[in-house]
């Protein structure tokens, strides 16, 4: 569905954010895109959305190169950026003007999503708070029914009930034809929603595995005291003592602690690389 081949890109000539970077996002999956600040998550999303062109390599969505950036490329793709600006009009006007650009846009779905977020379609966009504007944009994005939905920090600015609503809406909107790519630092917000985890660091793909595979290979164990170095792949302090990541010997899928996993991958890249090698 989304194919990135040998991508090289840098904002300056001296420093390349991506060098020969390749990844494939398939349909029917909800991807979590994790990385530290400045690791290139938003840049990757902009490249997929055709907002930035690669210096070399390419990004292909459904067989169309992002460099084309024509209607055929864009009409099946919607990006909800972290920073956005909405025009000075009512929500109803916004839909009337922008919905015609998306063939599969559903006004009924949009109304339902707005209702779920407790927002009236008669409200004026510029009078809404950042969080409520984001809810409108999320509702619109989901209602476009595009095949590729890119969400950059979607839970930023949302209140706690809205985060739950968003999780429910995304889960309900996910179909085998659609692909959701969600970039976030708030991993707890989307913990039970993701099907696949991608962790990137500048130019490196640190992890690209399904949640199921991850759960089969590792488990999270609480320790009352500090564990020995060879006892875990990674450990860190928790409220009750320590929590460690260990190789899963039972093959039973346990619950994944995304925050600990992310910290572990960043701190112990070699160990996790070894564990998640294709033939391991």
């Amino acid at each position: 569905m989304v194919e990135i081949n040998d991508l090289s890109f840098g904002y300056t000539r001296k420093e390349n954010l991506y060098q020969q970077f390749s990844i494939y996002f398939k349909s029917g999956q909800i991807y979590g895109l994790l990385g530290q600040n400045g690791s290139g998550k938003s840049t990757l999303m902009k490249i997929i959305a055709g907002l930035i062109y690669p210096d070399s390599g390419n990004c292909v969505v459904d067989g169309i190169d992002s460099k084309e950036r024509n209607y055929n490329y864009l009409h099946n793709l919607y990006i909800i950026p972290e920073e956005f600006d909405l025009p000075d009009m009512t929500i109803a006007s916004y839909v009337r003007i922008y919905a015609p650009f998306y063939d599969a846009f559903s006004k009924d779905q949009f109304a339902t999503y707005l209702k779920e977020f407790d927002i009236s379609p008669e409200e004026k966009l510029h009078k809404l708070s950042y969080g409520n504007k984001k809810k409108v944009l999320l509702s619109f994005g989901l209602a476009t029914n595009v095949r590729v939905l890119l969400l950059d920090e979607p839970t930023n600015g949302l209140d706690i009930p809205s985060k739950k609503t968003l999780r429910q809406l995304i889960a309900a909107a996910a179909t085998p034809e659609r692909c959701f790519i969600i970039s976030t630092h708030q991993v707890h917000d989307l913990e039970n929603l993701l099907d696949h985890l991608v962790v990137i660091s500048k130019n490196k793909l640190l992890l690209n595995e399904s949640i199921s595979t991850i759960a089969q290979k590792i488990s999270f164990v609480p320790f009352s005291s500090r564990p020995a170095e060879n006892e875990t792949l990674y450990y860190e302090k928790s409220f009750t003592g320590h929590i460690g990541i260990v190789a899963n010997k039972s093959n039973e899928e346990g619950k994944i602690n995304l925050e600990v996993l992310f910290n572990g991958i960043i701190a112990q890249q070699a160990k996790f690389n070894q564990l998640f090698k294709p033939n391991n």
Binding site: K46, L51, N70, H75, I79, P81, D85, L86, Y98, F101
Partner: peptide
């Protein structure tokens, strides 16, 4: 971002 990603040629 919203303007440039609007589906049109």
């Amino acid at each position: 971002i919203s303007a440039l990603s609007l589906p049109c040629n």
